[in-house]
Design a protein around this nucleic acid. Sequence first.
DNA 1: ACCCAGGCGACGA
DNA 2: TCGTCGCATGGG
Length: 266
Amino acid sequence: MKYNIILDIVGEFDLDKTLFCGQAFRWQQKQDKYFAVVEDNYVCAYINDENKLVVQSDKPQQKEYWQKYFALDQDYVGYHNRLCKNETLKKCVQQASGIRVLTQPFFETLISFIISQNNNIPRITKIIDLLCKNFGNKINDEFYTFPTAQVLSELSLEDLQVIRSGFRAKYILDAAQKVASGEVCYDVLLNQDYQDAFITIQKIKGVGPKVADCVLLFSAEKKCAFPKDVWIKKAMEQLFADGLPAEAEGIEGIAQQYIFEYIRKN
DNA sequence: ACCCAGGCGACGA
DNA sequence: TCGTCGCATGGG
């Protein structure tokens, strides 16, 4: 780990919850440190005794990249205050305080949430792990890069059989082909507003409203994306029968993380 | 043996 | 356009 970056934390920040609340699938905890491969960089992250986030890595990376990745460039004090004006949202925020919405690499996020459909988290993690070990680049005995769209786009369904992803394999190939060809492009999604990006990403087979919102929220910086899975639908019935409160307007995705964590615990 | 899992596409009305 | 159903696989 040659490179060392130290980031200031403003507002609530819970690294453990943020990495293991179901938005990311490739972080591993060892004692009080967390390890992963992000892009092609082997990374270790931890909170030091001055409550700063330390990010160590094998390759150089801009400080701004990690601020955005860990959402330390966002006004979470402001989000927090706004959401807590609503009593029900306040309960969710307090239960799940410190969770942040990461900004993760696009292709990895896209494929990960395609794999997540009609699936459970242990198996999602296992399939992603097999995908990286079979088609990514080796960093060390445990860690591999996430395979590129180019590499996956050249595979056949039989090649992909080793990851045991079932009916999702054909969706993975379609996503890889459309990203590799440029038909679906991250920079375009970033520049589109939410509504247009929501339509664009669903051109990929196996990407419906839920997966689209996950990719837009967890990678393409659309804070108003509001992924509606079975848990959130349950929460909406129980807690927000009249729809999301006005306090969440524009930051529905931030609220979603708190609500998701709350409903799963209760 | 069954049931379900951060959904989606195909199909019929 | 809307509701229903099958889908690969593995763990409980």
